[in-house]
């Protein structure tokens, strides 16, 4: 077992993990942060996307031991109290989802995209989200949600 400690959604967490424990399993099974979903399990679909030190990673393809000392943000750490993150609100308002399974990863990838490029073109949004698959929406409303969030975040900063 290996000792790790990390900040997860603003809370200091630590524990003993088997080195083979995947980050997504540590989050879900040890910490109970089940907002992050496991989709394809082969690093294709992006459903498990979280931020590590502010940048998106696929938590099914990162070992828990690799985030020792780092800061992890999951979909559950985005809202401030009752106030949803603008990207969360935009996905709801634009109906950027149908079944919702890809949504936690899609939102986190969008947050990462907008942190780097606050005013992306449609092509840049599609390119930026290429690592996240949605089998329901055809992406149309997802792109619209990111554009809506970008406009709102631009207006408030």
């Amino acid at each position: 077992m290996t000792h790790i400690s990390a900040t997860v959604d603003g809370v200091h967490r630590q524990g003993e993990v088997e080195p083979r424990t995947l980050l997504v399993h540590w989050l879900r099974e040890s910490l109970g942060q089940v907002g992050t979903t496991v989709g394809c399990d082969t690093s294709n679909c992006g459903a498990c996307t979280v931020l590590v030190d502010g940048r998106s990673v696929k938590s099914c393809s990162v070992l828990a031991v690799q985030i020792d000392g780092k800061s992890v943000t999951t979909i559950q750490g985005l809202a401030e109290g009752e106030d949803w993150h603008p990207v969360q609100r935009a996905f709801k308002e634009c109906h950027g989802l149908q079944c919702g399974y890809c949504t936690p990863g899609m939102v986190m990838a969008s947050v990462d995209l907008l942190s780097e490029n606050p005013n992306p073109t449609e092509a840049e949004i599609r390119e930026g989200l290429e690592g996240n698959l949605c089998r329901c929406t055809g992406y149309h409303n997802i792109v619209k949600a990111v554009q809506t969030a970008a406009a709102e975040m631009g207006a408030t900063t």
Partner: peptide
């Protein structure tokens, strides 16, 4: 290469 999340790591 791959996608943004994979390029980050």
């Amino acid at each position: 290469v791959a996608d943004p999340a994979i390029r980050h790591k």
